[in-house]
Amino acid sequence: MNIFRLIGDLSHLASIFILLHKIQTTRSCRGISFKTQALYVTVFATRYLDLIFGEFVSVYNVIMKLFFLGSSCYILYLMKMKYKPTNDPSIDTFRLEYLLGPCTVLALIFNFSFTPVEILWSFSIFLEAVAILPQLFMLQRTGEAEAITTHYLAALGAYRALYIPNWIYRYYTEGSWDPIAVLAGLVQTGLYLDFFYIYVTKVLQGQKFELPA
């Protein structure tokens, strides 16, 4: 564990609390892509199989994984049951097969060993890299977002961005790197660059998040 990974994880944790806070206080999941949230459940469910089949890492690791699994399922429940009337599927139109198909193929090609657990682990890494796309696509379509939604996205983006110095640190201290996680993580962070730019230049200056026409 190093400081970059710890702050990254805390940022990930914060993003989920921000999202829950947004849904609970506004009693609405307006502006949140159900597809992206469903992809995160898929990501956690396929990666955290290692809770059952993998080696024990640490109590921290187990608790965080259980939290991410539980909270992401709870968010789906809020969107599909409790606050269903506020969820508008007609603007959440990104085609999931464009993500699931390529991620499946990539996972079958690039994995540590050709076993179900390792293929699913790779699949979860690739899928996580692009899981935000339905959400960003929705933002693009509506052209604006509530401030709280942008704080959620910023915290979520910062999480993987902070993993990059963590991998650099690990490369120098452990002498190795993980090409699957690192390359997917760079792509994942790259997808946020446009968003980060508008977040920093507008939202953090107190302006509304609006995409340029």
Partner: peptide
């Protein structure tokens, strides 16, 4: 065989 590095991350 050691575990691949990122397997101990979240």
């Amino acid at each position: 065989q050691p575990q691949p590095q990122a397997h101990d991350e979240l």
